[in-house]
Design a protein around this nucleic acid. Structure first.
Lengths: 164, 164
DNA sequence: CTATTATCGACAACATGGTTGACCATATCG
DNA sequence: CGATATGGTCAACCATGTTGTCGATAATAG
């Protein structure tokens, strides 16, 4: 296996290129696993971006502007995601009585159900890592990542998302 | 800081939700840093996907089909990325004398220069992690990730890409 | 040697999820 | 009350995927 990533550096200890690839592959493996199971559990149309958006909406609901802020995207983009989630039956918009400009985005029962399931699946994915690595190594890995990437919220502002 | 990610689980040791977010945040921080510096060094139009594609092209060049295989995307998508890289002057297509169907995608001198720079920047990013975490913790982190995501190649087949 | 089949690269149409700019309705402030 | 700020939406556009189709060329079977 020498055909990849060895174009210029013959055999250095660890290529700098590898680290982001490992991080992304780890991310992808968890996300793909969770969404495959979510699809099996009655949520085939839920895409990763939707899960993060619903997580950002939370049980209290948010306004479009606040959702955009939490996701780190434009409010128009947040609006589009909301449109899609509404179409799929995961959220609905309710007028705010206190401020007629605002609409509060709230999870529907189906949205809450999906969020609860996905939380369980994320926990299960993490548990599998814990089984393979051992709890200590996993905790050390998470601590290391927290030290390097302290602002890991919902900022998943990638342009598109994770293929299928 | 209790407003995020606590919708259902009051205070479990570590939320399963956090791990993918940490992985992605780590990935993003490295990618963003490298591309910001790359932009400063005369490559403002180079997007993360381009870097990975050029890495997959390598110094020997590849055919469109092989590039698609390496990136884990359709050959049409690989063709589009190649179009873009060609437009930006990072690669060119040369007819294969042995097989008139094929065209070999090769890096231009500018493409090679960008790839060399980006390799150095990735190494620098990793060195910074090493400084903060210490070489041993970083190595342990990488080992853990390799155990969980063994097939970290160029498979970055996300739909879109990393915002700006 | 020719006829079929397989492969390569491209084109077209479409989906997704971003962006910016414009705009109206409503709230807030001087 | 009038000026300004804010919230949500529409429209146009972009990047990067997807699938289906197809013509040109190569490889293989008869």
């Amino acid at each position: 296996m020498t055909e990849y990533g060895r174009h210029a550096a013959p055999d250095r200890a660890t290529e700098g290129y590898e680290l982001p690839l490992l991080l992304f592959a780890g991310f992808r493996s968890i996300i793909d696993r969770v969404h495959a199971e979510l699809a099996d559990q009655g949520h085939p149309d839920l895409r990763p971006a939707h899960g993060f958006a619903m997580q950002a909406i939370g049980s209290d609901g948010v306004t479009a502007t606040e959702l955009a802020r939490r996701l780190g995207i434009s409010k128009q983009a947040a609006g589009k995601t909301t449109d899609r989630l509404e179409l799929l039956g995961y959220v609905h918009r309710v007028a705010d009585r206190a401020d007629a400009r605002q609409k509060v985005i709230r999870l529907t029962p189906r949205g809450i159900e999906a969020l609860v399931r996905s939380a369980a699946l994320f926990d299960a994915a993490r548990a599998q890592w814990s089984t393979v690595l051992g709890p200590d190594r996993l905790a050390a890995l998470e601590d290391g990542l927290r030290a390097m990437a302290p602002d890991a919220r919902y900022r998943l502002d990638a342009a598109g998302w994770f293929g299928v």
